[in-house]
């Protein structure tokens, strides 16, 4: 799991380093979109929806947040940033983030 995540992480460098590369190529990073999150129930939903706009590091570098904070983050992504996450998946993502990157309230 970690191998894939970090190989993808590093793949940004050569892609962006090629200055003439069209913007779509430099920022899509297909390798970055898989398996970058810790394994666990809900990781697939997080992979599907969160990685559309940002790397998993936006999650993994956060301090351990409790459920209320992760819920607020997911809500912000949906309401303020226009993430089209169905209710069921959003709830799953909150559970996943709390379990994998969180702390008890």
């Amino acid at each position: 799991m970690k191998i894939i995540a970090f190989a993808a992480f590093a793949a940004l460098v050569p892609l962006v380093a090629a200055g003439a590369t069209p913007s779509k190529v430099s920022v899509t990073m297909p390798g970055d979109l898989s398996f970058a999150f810790k394994p666990g129930p809900g990781s697939q939903a997080a992979t599907t929806y969160c990685l559309i706009c940002h790397s998993s590091a936006y999650v993994s570098t956060q301090p351990p947040l409790d459920r209320a904070h992760w819920d607020a983050e997911v809500t912000k992504m949906r309401k303020a940033f226009g993430a089209t996450i169905p209710d069921k998946d959003a709830a799953e993502i909150v559970d996943y983030l709390t379990a994998s990157y969180g702390k008890a309230p």
Binding site: F6, F9, V13
Partner: peptide, 15 residues
């Protein structure tokens, strides 16, 4: 650290 080492082994890192 684990990730970095793995990536190097995988040959994916330019540096």
């Amino acid at each position: 650290l684990a990730g970095s080492a793995a990536a190097v082994l995988g040959g994916a890192l330019a540096a």
